Amino acid sequence: MSELRLDGFDLGAFVQATLAEDLGSGKDITSEAVIPADLRFEGVMDSRDPIVVAGLSIAAGFFRALDPDVEIEMLVDDGQRVAAGTDLMRLRGRARAMLTAERSALNTVQHLSGIATLTRAYVDAIAGTGATLLDTRKTIPGLRVLEKYATRMGGAANHRMGLWDAAMIKDNHVAVAGGVAEAVRRARAAGIAEIIVEVDRIDQIEPALAAGTTRLLLDNMEPATLRGAVTLVGGRVPTEASGGVRLDTIRAIAETGVDFISVGRITQSAPAADIGLDFASL
């Protein structure tokens, strides 16, 4: 597996900042006191639950930062669904370095694999409907690129990466602008190519379409209302359902015919995957 490369993400800087947070201005006083400097370890990272894997290359970066000569064998790929008890990564290297890097590496791969695993559950729930699962901007500050990478590993597509790559006109924008149509008109006048408009009432749909919206976000609508909205739009622009979507409700939402369903829970509420790392002296 090659080093992970993502737009807007600097792996080296992330690794150094994370290790600095753990080490402070000092060092790993426990490992230096207890572990001989020349001792070498062999370790295996494994999953204790069935998961979708994400973040292994990032985890490897922590070990390489502290021991450039560490031997790392990737046993699975990001995006792969694995059974409980699956070995994910094998390592050989300096014991102190491994122990110092362990927590940062595990925290990262546990968090990202947890997101990928929950995302896959949502994707599986709408299989065959034609709807595409989207993530949202509900991410931990500083981790958006990684968390959105994890949702892709789980089978979702990315929504906006930030405030810069598409306009999303929400209720507060509409209130200030004086209406849906006027808000869309202003966005078009500003030269914005992609304009997503959030509507929570059926009577807002035609004004938004007439003004030139490129996608409609149908907010907090029940399936029957969604179905009527999709029929009214008639394929003129893509439709997206959002708001309060849960794993037990997403199938019914998808079956209304919407093109996209955005779910904040897949990043905001994903539990960490149960992944461990066991070492033994060489």
Rank of each mutant, 00 (worst) to 15 (best):
S2I: 13
R5K: 07
L6K: 06
F9L: 08
G12S: 06
G12D: 08
V15L: 15
V15R: 13
Q16M: 14
S25L: 10
D28C: 03
T30L: 07
T30S: 10
T30F: 13
A33E: 04
V34D: 06
I35S: 02
D38K: 13
D38C: 09
F41H: 15
M45Q: 01
R48E: 09
P50V: 15
I51F: 04
A54P: 07
L56S: 05
S57R: 12
G61E: 11
P68Q: 09
V76S: 09
G79N: 07
Q80W: 10
Q80M: 08
Q80K: 11
R81W: 14
V82F: 12
A83G: 03
G85H: 02
G85C: 03
L88T: 01
L88Q: 03
M89N: 02
L91M: 02
L91S: 01
A95M: 10
S104Q: 14
V109E: 15
H111R: 15
T117I: 07
L118M: 12
A121G: 12
Y122C: 00
V123R: 11
A125T: 10
I126Y: 04
I126K: 02
A127Q: 12
T129H: 12
T129C: 07
L133D: 08
P141W: 15
G142M: 14
R144G: 10
L146E: 07
E147H: 10
K148R: 11
Y149I: 02
A150C: 13
A157W: 14
A157M: 14
A157P: 00
M161N: 08
A167C: 07
A167N: 09
A167Q: 05
K170Q: 05
H173R: 08
V174Q: 06
A175E: 14
G178Y: 04
G179H: 06
G179W: 11
V180A: 04
V180M: 04
A181S: 04
R186N: 03
A189M: 03
A189H: 02
G191E: 06
G191T: 06
I196K: 01
I196E: 14
P207Q: 15
L209W: 00
G212V: 00
G212F: 01
G212W: 00
L217E: 09
N220Y: 13
E222D: 11
T225E: 11
R227E: 15
R236S: 05
S242C: 09
S242I: 04
V245L: 06
R246M: 14
T249A: 00
T249W: 00
R251T: 09
A254F: 04
E255Y: 06
G257R: 03
F260W: 13
D278F: 15
L282D: 05
